[in-house]
Design a protein around this nucleic acid. Structure first.
Length: 947
RNA sequence: GCACGGGUAGCUCAAUGGUAGAGCAAACGGUUGAUAACCGUUAGGUUCCUGGUUCAAAUCCCGGCUCGUGCACCA
């Protein structure tokens, strides 16, 4: 046979290889030039709003990491899905630009540190640094295919933003939620600033562990039990891991309900410790139990108000009682320094013993610390120990490793230090905040308990920072009285100036510039100083619901529909946003909060540079393209930590390729299809109708998955559909009709009609997760199939088409597939024995125990061999035996389905490659079967030789 | 230390208390008219471990291991 007959092969401009590095960028350029995002908004402006408000990434780096990519992609999947569903879903990206880490990063390269330049100069450098990082991050985000208003992002350093933030401050001041107070707050001596709870992290730290005697004053001996009143040396023993806080000691705390033993020792006189801890203390102090005797035991509550002498300062330390004292470690007698611990502070307040905090902002002792003045706090431990030892007050000394608060930015240990700070009174609106939490949908649901517990317990929010790079706390103090001006009208004047000049004005302008020259406060004072603290950066981002969502008309105000961030934001942005919103409006700023976990490597370890397991988004994109990265996002269950690594990406690339080729098959076979020639549903064959039914099932379930934000289910579904239903089943079977039926035949048009339905739906289902792929498909689709729509992003998300549903047909075909599985096994056997190659070389005989199933197969008639892709297929009657006749090659049998494979009868048709007895019957077309002969005649083109 | 969540095939995910399934990857084979594409077959599991409830447990209960997260770590 020297000639080949032409068949209808697929033709398409849609390439098999994605060439993402080039093609994705082209597509993004098209979206940008044609303003597809803007067109989408315009098209859907009358739809219900769905606003996902962007949590601003921090501008300390010019490159995003994989976790940020995960977050941004998740957001984009949501907004694209909602938009295609017809929602008005604008997305305004934001950036967080103030704060300590940026200031530190800038100062790192400055000789002489922060004192070598003016605040304005420092702020200018911080601003430049932040804005240059913004450029880098923006490029990264856009390359992910994230759509949104990139021309007008919100930036917290924007003067309008700053003004809005000041106005929020004004409202909170007016509501009485802001106050200045002296409190021990966590302080970073390295960064020289106060830190919020959210900025503290705990880690192991080696501390001194010491036991110290606090002698009872002679005049308090009368308050002791009878048995010890005559003892000359009675001391409470405290345990501490921070010797440097001893200069600030003002008391000793006992638990009111614990029993305290008065233990007479040979070496240290009478010592007082909790009964429950007596033995462990004796042991720790190297005191032989046999030489010690308990003279008396007394409840903590009856020892209250005994006065002790400070071990090395001429000062009284008062014995107090508090429930915070525990019996698991120490002595049951707690060294209390109100200036260095929150609980100490509270207790000290109750007993009015005062506050002492003799440490400056850099962690050095002040004059108040007496002989230790000038030492850095951590260098003071040893001298204090030596001193205690000399005085005979030190019972024991060792090292202990325990967890200790550290600065989450500079990683250095923190101290507690009492200073004057501005606070937002969480107590003032805690109840409302908890109520608001209840109105929000938290996904996953555990997030609700998490934030509830945090807000329930959290202390007042310290919003002061002693730095330069941020929005100033807009308060003036009377120069004479020192009284702060906390008036809404005054603060709003500051906002008005900032709106025009930015917050630099705070450093550049005199108070009178803001207040007016003839301004006087209630007491008639006209001279003022400006507050020097700036606001916690969490306050900046915490007010975006007001400064962005409420301020930008296109976002249509709070509450917005969704916040979507990493689960660490329960204590960060979700909380700061909630608190300020409740303070302002008594409601949450969001209706739903969705959280995701962190990205880890394939073995579940955290990513770190030192381990070398970091996956960089831009490297993934370079190698595989943004859509593969997006596919990764869609493939994992992000409620927990999400793994990523080389193997996973390679697999995802395979899946992407499979999706692409599935679509390519459809495109190729639709090149000559005009929807005008579509075949009516009633005239489709069974398998066409079946696949359309399956498609509806897919659509329904995909919508459910997207609605529940369970993208990994979508990923599994879509993949299964393309691989199982389409590629290995429908496409494989229907290929014969497409290729060998005559071009305009109903048989071929029916497949094309079906393929078009499939394609129209699939290309739309692909948009949220793999928008570049979807757009690439769209741009390569025959014009007739696109309905003049410029971009696939402007199309509508598919809905279920009830007219395609047919449950009976579904069951029918599922039975047939069961049979097909057994047939494949039989064919494989014949193939394995090298008796056939292509399945077209085979004939299948079937015998079914189930008569109904046999009937079903019989009803398929000519479609049956097509189902198996064999040349012939016959269903035997109940009384016929499965033959072992000539040509028998193999067989298989499973659950009543019995299959025999025989050599196909007849000769191979030169065109359709099926074996048939008809080949050779016709003199004019001796190489063709009847069907091919008719097709060739119908198409008028035959015997064309292939090149 | 306390609380919550997770642990199913190499990977990503399924399984109203009723024979543990898909896809991918692997191995082997076919096709050469989806061709750096496509099709088929095979293999792969003590469902983290130990007890218990039940006719029946991946699923429910007790205890443990492990990973993650949060809280507490205060002296």
């Amino acid at each position: 046979m020297s000639e080949k007959y032409s068949v209808n092969l697929p033709q398409t401009s849609f390439p098999m290889k994605a060439n993402s590095a080039v093609r994705e960028v082209e597509i993004q350029k098209m979206w940008e030039e044609d303003k597809i995002y803007e067109q989408s908004l315009e098209k859907r402006k009358d739809g219900a709003k769905f606003v996902l408000h962007d949590g601003p990434p921090y501008l300390s780096s010019n490159k995003i990491h994989i976790g940020t990519a995960l977050n941004k992609i998740l957001k984009d999947i949501v907004t694209k899905y909602k938009a295609l569903q017809g929602y008005y879903a604008p997305y305004v990206p934001g950036y967080d630009s103030h704060g300590l880490p940026i200031e530190n990063a800038v100062l790192k390269d400055v000789k002489g540190g922060r004192n070598s330049m003016t605040p304005i100069e420092l702020r200018r450098r911080c601003r430049d640094f932040a804005l240059s990082n913004l450029k880098g991050q923006e490029t990264n985000f856009k390359r992910l295919g994230v759509w949104g208003d990139w021309e007008h992002p919100y930036i917290t350093l924007d003067s309008k933003f700053e003004a809005a933030q000041i106005r929020v401050f004004a409202k909170m001041a007016a509501a009485g939620y802001l106050y200045k107070g002296l409190k021990p707050i966590t302080w970073c001596p390295n960064c020289e600033t106060a830190l919020a709870e959210a900025e503290v992290e705990y880690g192991d730290h080696v501390s001194e562990s010491i036991y110290v005697k606090f002698a009872v004053k002679p005049e308090s001996l009368a308050k002791l039990p009878e048995a010890v009143r005559n003892e000359s040396d009675v001391s409470f023993v405290i345990w501490t891991t921070t010797p440097w806080t001893l200069p600030a000691n003002l008391g000793v705390a006992l638990h009111p309900d614990f029993n305290y033993d008065f233990v007479k020792t040979a070496e240290h006189g009478v010592i007082v410790v909790a009964e429950a801890l007596r033995n462990s203390v004796l042991k720790a102090c190297g005191i032989d139990e046999s030489t010690a005797s308990v003279l008396a035991t007394e409840k903590g509550s009856s020892l209250e108000y005994i006065e002790c002498v400070h071990p090395f300062v001429q000062r009284t330390s008062l014995v107090m009682v508090g429930d915070h004292v525990t019996a698991d470690t120490g002595t049951g007698c707690v060294h209390t320094a109100p200036g260095h611990g929150p609980e100490d502070f509270l207790l000290g307040n109750k007993y009015k013993i005062g506050v002492l905090s003799p440490v400056d902002g850099r962690g050095f002792f002040t004059e108040e610390a007496g002989q230790f003045a000038g030492l850095r706090y951590d260098k003071a431990n040893q001298p204090i120990l030596d001193h205690l030892s000399e005085l005979g007050k030190l019972l024991a000394h060792s090292k202990v490793t325990h967890s200790y608060p550290h600065c989450w930015r500079c990683k250095k240990p923190l101290i507690f230090r009492a200073t004057e700070q501005w606070f937002a009174s969480v107590d003032g609106f805690r109840k409302q905040a908890l109520k608001a939490i209840d109105t929000v949908e938290w996904i996953p649901a555990s997030g609700k308990n998490r934030i509830f517990a945090m807000v329930e317990k959290r202390a007042d929010w310290c919003i002061s920072r002693q730095r330069s790079w941020g929005v100033p706390i807009p308060v003036f103090y009377s120069r004479k009285t020192g009284k702060p001006l906390l008036r809404e009208d005054v603060i709003r004047k500051v906002a008005d100036v900032f709106e025009v000049e930015g917050s630099d004005a705070w450093w550049e302008r005199e108070p009178s510039y803001f207040l007016g020259t003839d301004f006087k406060d209630e007491e008639g004072e006209s001279e003022f100083d400006k507050e020097t603290d700036i606001m916690d950066v969490w306050f900046d981002s915490g007010v975006t619901h007001s400064s962005v969502v409420d301020a930008r008309p296109e976002l249509r105000g709070t509450p917005c529909e969704l916040y979507l961030e990493g689960s660490d934001q329960h204590r960060g942005w979700f909380q700061s946003s909630l608190l300020t919103s409740v303070a302002l409006h008594d409601r949450a700023p969001y209706k739903t909060v969705l959280t995701h976990g962190f990205v880890v490597d394939e073995t579940g370890r955290k990513m770190s540079k030192s381990v070398g397991n970091v996956v960089e988004p831009d490297e993934v994109i370079k190698q595989y393209g943004a859509d593969v990265l997006r596919l990764w996002v869609a493939s994992v269950n992000y409620t927990d930590d999400v793994p990523i690594g080389k193997n996973m990406l390679a697999q995802l690339a395979e899946v992407y390729r499979k999706l692409r080729n599935t679509v390519r098959y459809m495109l190729g076979n639709l090149h000559d299809f005009d929807p005008k020639d579509a075949v009516k549903y009633e005239d489709l064959t069974g398998i066409d109708k079946f696949i359309l039914h399956r498609l509806q099932d897919l659509v329904v379930r995909v919508r459910e998955d997207f609605d529940k934000y369970e993208f990994f289910k979508y990923y599994q579904l879509l993949q299964n559909f393309c691989v199982v239903d389409l590629s290995s089943f429908y496409f494989d079977i229907v290929k014969d009709r497409l290729y060998t039926s005559s071009k305009r035949s109903v048989s071929r048009r029916a497949v094309q009609t079906t393929l078009n339905e499939l394609l129209q739906v699939l290309v739309r289902l692909l948009v949220p997760v793999t928008p570049h792929l979807a757009e690439d498909i769209w741009q390569n689709m025959p014009e007739l199939l696109k309905g003049n729509e410029r971009s696939v992003l402007l199309t509508d998300f598919p809905v279920e088409r009830k007219e395609y549903l047919d449950a009976e047909l579904d069951n029918f075909w599922k039975d047939l597939i069961t049979v097909r599985v057994v047939v494949n096994k039989a064919l494989e056997q014949a193939r394995g024995a090298r008796k056939i190659g292509s399945s077209l070389e085979a004939k299948v005989l079937l015998k079914l125990d189930d008569a109904k199933l046999a009937e079903k197969l019989l009803s398929l008639n000519q479609e049956l061999n097509g189902l198996f892709i064999t040349s012939q297929a016959t269903v035997l009657a109940q009384n016929e035996a499965l033959s072992t006749e000539e040509g028998h090659l193999s067989d298989a049998s499973e659950s009543g389905i019995n299959v025999a494979v025989l050599q196909a009868s007849g000769t191979k048709c030169a065109r359709c490659w099926k074996y048939s007895l008809e080949v050779g019957e016709n003199a004019e077309y001796p190489e063709l079967c009847n069907a091919c002969r008719e097709a060739v005649i119908a198409d008028g083109a035959f015997c064309s030789s292939r090149t």
